[in-house]
């Protein structure tokens, strides 16, 4: 024991149980999936080779990435506006806004998706209203297409975009904005040259969070896409439960994981990720 502690800092012994827990519960299964993707149904790169050969699988990956990018753009832009409004609202209104945001944040994704089902159907509230006021003659097809999926996903993702942005905006010193005005900058100049750069860490955090969470979306595409919009998560589930091609499922999961890690790595080349995820900014 003494010989051991001489080489290993005693601090490690204290965190050892947690460390083991993380290894067995996180790293283990992830390695298992990686392993599966190379070994099932037969050892080799077969599963990965198929991704390149089969247009269907590639198309699903591409659909997923495209939907996630669009979702991220809309969520972050809308989230930025909402966070901005919240930071600059009066205290009372701000707390109302935060409550509304958190309520929608806490409602189950299934409930929210079905709510959109009610609203967006051919005889749903949105189409009926638009027809009644004469804006459209024929109902708009909101569902069983990408539009419906995007509406559902953006709506779900907005709180995830708002929260990191809110933190970032709240930490801005109002005097810095005043300094910019005092030096003769217009509101627009102050926004582009001072406000936006200072909220960039929040913007990057929101973007990463929304994009990564979007990649794994399952319920919303399944319900609002109505089988017409197939995203990776749903496809993986089909491979696991219906066609029992675990190797293919594992391969797609591994690709997603690698994609996310690669993205984080690229980001880390440009900025300190610790500042993005709430670390010290100064």
């Amino acid at each position: 024991m003494h010989a051991l502690t001489r080489h290993i800092h005693p601090g490690w012994l204290i965190i050892a149980p947690l460390f083991l827990l993380v290894v067995t519960l996180y790293l283990g299964p992830i390695l298992n999936i990686l392993w599966l993707s190379f070994t099932d149904p037969e050892p080799g790169l077969g599963n990965y080779a198929k991704l390149g050969q089969e247009g269907a699988q590639l198309r699903i990956v591409w659909t997923t990435v495209r939907i996630c990018i669009i979702t991220t753009i809309f969520s972050v832009v809308l989230g930025y506006s909402i966070a901005y409004a919240m930071v600059h609202a009066h205290r009372q209104q701000k707390s109302y806004m935060l409550t509304l945001l958190l309520v929608s944040f806490w409602i189950s994704i299934l409930v929210r998706t079905f709510a959109w089902l009610m609203l967006l159907g051919r005889k749903g509230l949105v189409n009926v209203t638009l027809e009644d006021i004469g804006l459209i003659a024929e109902p708009i097809t909101f569902m069983r297409n990408e539009l419906g999926v995007l509406i559902g996903m953006v709506h779900y993702m907005i709180p995830y975009a708002v929260l990191p942005l809110l933190v970032s905006m709240q930490s801005i010193d109002q005097r810095v904005m005043n300094a910019s005005r005092n030096l003769g900058a217009s509101g627009t100049q102050t926004f582009w040259r001072i406000y936006l750069p200072l909220t960039t860490p929040g913007l990057v955090a929101a973007t990463l969070l929304v994009f990564i969470l979007s990649l794994g979306f399952y319920v919303t595409p399944a319900v609002l896409g109505g089988g017409k919009v197939l995203m990776v998560a749903e496809y993986i589930s089909v491979q696991l439960l219906v066609t029992l091609k675990w190797g293919t499922a594992a391969m797609l999961a591994a690709i997603m994981l690698m994609g996310v890690l690669a993205m984080l790595w690229i980001m880390s080349r440009f900025m300190k990720l610790s500042t993005v995820f709430g670390g010290a900014t100064r």
């Binding site: 010193d173 005097r175 810095v176 300094a179 005005r181 005092n182 001072i194």
Partner: peptide
């Protein structure tokens, strides 16, 4: 304020970080 052309040194300096 932005049209007054007054210089100002703020408490805590308010430099653009």
């Amino acid at each position: 304020a932005e049209k007054r052309n007054f210089g100002m040194v703020f408490q805590g300096y308010a430099l653009f970080p």
